[in-house]
Amino acid sequence: MKRLSQFAVGERGVVLSVTGDGAIRRRLFDMGVTPGVEVRLRKKAPFGDPIEITLRGYALTLRKAEAARVVLE
């Protein structure tokens, strides 16, 4: 169990769950961050935040605070 915000560049993992509630969580689901999907941390912006991940064949960027909601195996 690890959170996406703790990942290092190049690390990959499978999403277990997305915590929290409301619009941000729904947004993550809509963008395809659902349980069972494999994501890879592709890049960190200058100052280490936001981060860029690849999943389902495309690139998504999100902030560390948002990434902290994503729990991975």
Partner: peptide
Amino acid sequence: EESPFIMELPD
């Protein structure tokens, strides 16, 4: 409060 920043990076 901060607004979310969950954005697609297009090719």
